[in-house]
Computed example of a mutant assay.
Amino acid sequence: MEKLQQKQITDFIKYHREEFQTKLLSEAGNVAGKINDILQSGNIDLLKNAEKMIMFVVEKRDNELISFAQQEGVAWAKHALTLTLKLEWVHAIRRTIWHYLYEFDLENTNERSISDYRETIFQMEQLVNDGIDKFLNSFFISYSTFKDELISAQRKMVEHLSVPIIPISPFVAVLPLIGVIDVYRIDTIEEKVLSEISNLKIRTLIIDLSGITDMDIEVIHHFQKVLSGVSLMGCEAVITGLRAELVRKMIHLDISFDEYASTKGTLQQTLTTYFKTN
């Protein structure tokens, strides 16, 4: 399709903007009733953005189309708008574009041969559908990437909150661990423990495991390395609350924490002993 004809089509759609928007809304179904809600909640003007997308598609401005799709993906993900609505809206745009391409063709029919006409229709189909598919592909990648990064950041924040290092004196702190410790969480524990020993100048770290019922083999080995790191930083590690199930597993695996930490019965007994001697 020639550049001149592309420009004529976009001018035709702009000239019939109100009719175009009415047709688009009639095609949009569920989305039409949410236009104002989406504008208010996410400052996303669906009608304005639809026109922008169409201009980029018809005029084959691929770089701008992809950049715009990426921005849209982030905006929709940020404001928790559903992909179902977006798909319905884009398909409505696709149908509406084809309706106005038909209207444009009716107004600009000349004595073209059938072969010329078929070639033009084929070019239009390829141009429009390829452009919309590029938009959707870039949109979904951007949406998914933003969501993944958001989930990762939220998980990391939750994991850091689940590693509460509590100072009980200028040089002594307690780390009570509860729940499941998986490979991801033991990484967080390592990062938090080593950084807080340095930041808080901790000399003794009491790690209470009474809330931990089990660890898999990989996590036990990693925890042993964490204790080694604590020792390397000149901090004494004291482990309390080891459960029988975990101790049995360590015995069968021939694993011990004795090289890097001392073990005590309960956190309460350990704290009582510590405050008596200090």
Score class of each variant (00 low, 15 high):
Lys3Met: 02
Glu19Lys: 10
Gln21Met: 12
Gly29Glu: 13
Asn36Asp: 15
Ile38Gln: 05
Gly42Pro: 10
Ile44Val: 14
Asn49Tyr: 02
Met55Asn: 13
Phe56Gly: 06
Glu59Asn: 03
Arg61Asp: 11
Asp62Phe: 00
Asn63Gly: 11
Leu65Arg: 04
Ser67Arg: 10
Phe68Ile: 09
Lys86Gln: 13
Glu88Tyr: 01
Tyr100Gly: 04
Tyr102Val: 09
Glu107Met: 02
Glu119Ile: 03
Asp130Glu: 13
Ile132Glu: 02
Ile151Ala: 05
Ser152His: 10
Arg155Pro: 08
Pro170Thr: 07
Val172Lys: 04
Val172Phe: 00
Val172Leu: 06
Leu175Pro: 05
Leu177Gly: 01
Val180Met: 05
Val183Arg: 07
Ile189Val: 10
Ile189Gln: 04
Glu190Asn: 09
Ser195Asn: 15
Ser198Val: 03
Leu200Tyr: 11
Arg203Cys: 05
Thr204Tyr: 00
Gly211Ile: 07
Thr213Val: 13
Asp216Val: 14
Glu218Val: 06
Ile220Arg: 08
Lys225Val: 10
Gly234Ala: 07
Glu245Pro: 01
Ile251Tyr: 12
Ile251Cys: 12
Leu253Ser: 06
Asp254Ala: 04
Ile255Val: 12
Ser256Tyr: 08
Phe257Gly: 07
Phe257Val: 01
Thr263Met: 11
Lys264Ile: 02
Thr272Ala: 10
Thr273Cys: 04
